[in-house]
Design a protein around this nucleic acid. Sequence first.
DNA 1: CGAGTTAATGCAATCGTTTGCGAGATTAGC
DNA 2: GCTAATCTCGCAAACGATTGCATTAACTCG
Lengths: 345, 345
Amino acid sequence: MAGRVTIADVARLAGVHQATVSRALNAATESQVNPATAKRIRRVAKEIGYIPNVVARGLRTRLSMTVGVIIPDLTNPIFPLIVRGLEDYLAPRGYTALLANTDRNDATEQRIFDSMMQRHVDGFVFATGHSDHALLAQSRDQGVPVVLVNRGVSDLSFPLITGDDKSGVFAVIEHLATLGHRRILHLAGPVGYSTSEARAEAFVAACAANGVVYAPSVSTDEFSIAAGRRVIDAAIDRNPRDVTAIVAANDLLALGALRAIRGHGLSCPEDISVTGYNDVAFSEDFRPPLTTVRVPYTQMGSEAGRLLLSEIKERSEPPFTITLPVSLVIRESTAKAPVTTAAAR
Amino acid sequence: MAGRVTIADVARLAGVHQATVSRALNAATESQVNPATAKRIRRVAKEIGYIPNVVARGLRTRLSMTVGVIIPDLTNPIFPLIVRGLEDYLAPRGYTALLANTDRNDATEQRIFDSMMQRHVDGFVFATGHSDHALLAQSRDQGVPVVLVNRGVSDLSFPLITGDDKSGVFAVIEHLATLGHRRILHLAGPVGYSTSEARAEAFVAACAANGVVYAPSVSTDEFSIAAGRRVIDAAIDRNPRDVTAIVAANDLLALGALRAIRGHGLSCPEDISVTGYNDVAFSEDFRPPLTTVRVPYTQMGSEAGRLLLSEIKERSEPPFTITLPVSLVIRESTAKAPVTTAAAR
DNA sequence: CGAGTTAATGCAATCGTTTGCGAGATTAGC
DNA sequence: GCTAATCTCGCAAACGATTGCATTAACTCG
């Protein structure tokens, strides 16, 4: 028990003032104290197991060595990757992460934000994909830096790390065009998400560039397997064999599409090709293994850490966007367009 | 900018002493101040946007309202569930979680532990599955409560939340026995993990109870797809058609087995049945959909939160173990034992 | 040898709260 | 109308560090 040992204990045992202890133990000020006493102080400190109280220090230095990480839902498989990358960057540099989920609920998000503000985090990483501007402005007003991950925000005054959605979608469409697909459906994500929008726009542009006819995008109300299945079920019922390929905005949606296709007695890729986006864990083991776009989420996390720390250190970093390259990974859910269907049109 | 607004600002504007402000804003002490002034204080506080500094408060109250969560690797799909359940319990109660990954590295683990200790976390949740006793003892010595998740530790002096491994494995074996399997292989997890050991033991007992002959367990060096594949590849090469079912200690290992089986031109479940453990996300979409055991990881997380908070509040809770029920989920990776093989023996 | 540097350390304020103690003011009891 | 109990609220000391400033001692140099 004994209550934690403080700097005063060390000072007493080493026969010096606590100010001297503080200086001796702090790399930046160590030069100000006699090497011999410094050594003695360090020895005593180690002996009695002194560990500095970061909270007390933070009170004085106004640094908590803590950053707030706000994500929608840790259960969505891309976020663990981001968080992991972020922490791997932060930990060796003495920072730790406070993590919280918003569940896309603005009230929750505000609550979390306040709670982290109270804890005086040194910066924020937002990966919410729709966080309202109010929070960002609030944070900036209080002088605590923010970096955004995996989302655009209309005004570009915050640094942002994102994957190259445009080139990812282009790669997908080119791949499908090469396989002879000419009628492709875009299974879009819910509106209001920057990724949905970026990918939908890129889809249109890519189709145009490749001479592909596209059906009007159908869009979902959430990024989930169920939503994908629901929408594709309806599409097939309405107009079977209309398209030869489905480009989903997301692996989850793609998985829903796969289930819908099987559910209708059709098969992928023989009757219809499907592509996903994200290259989520296990997508290699789906039925069939999913052709998708790999996004370097772990790297996005560590880049976010790098940017945030540099913002914390030298305040006035100009905001800019880092776009990370993505890559198409071709597996078995895409194949040549079925001749019958193509001919039938 | 303007630096955050403090209690002194509120006091000045409300024309009272800061002690009064503190009391007015704190539910427990609110009764000590005149309702009228309390109201005025609250109004002023709201007006100028006062948010109490939890760090400063913590310095005085010795409570950080923060708990440390130590896991091996967030990328392993069971941990996001646990963390999510934990945070969902913690957040509404004013606590936030500091999260860090050990990667099963003792040095890293010690570093993380120290770092969280410095931040004066009010308690720890360990889900490392092999964390050394030293750390636990250290934590107890300092008087900060610990709860363990998903692992046993030989001395049972810490509260523990775990899934019922024994009944899970029994359910699996009974299911296979009913399907006619008589020669079953256990694809065990790496030694030194409580889950590996518990499941391996249960396997032996369950086989004995069901009159099943089992091959000596083969064990892996890590819980991964690659490890599972490697071991099963070797087993098939050595002795094809020896067993009719493989019981893996984990879904990842099961997935490796599935790949190995396909790689040898065999098929699951026609030639050989496979079961997993955990019911990881997407296991429904594997080839074939995996029969496995569902473990309530999210609930494990929230139970851990409950236990930890109760330990924090009233210190001397006696340690005890909570075992959560699991359930067998039967999908397509298990089928009747092939007659040919059965007859051949 | 005295004045001026420099090196090493102590003093005390500060960061933003909470809280034991005590002082007035008000109310109650008789 | 006086004592005692009860409400309010202010004072000031914590909590555990950091840091500007002052002080002392030792050293340099002309």
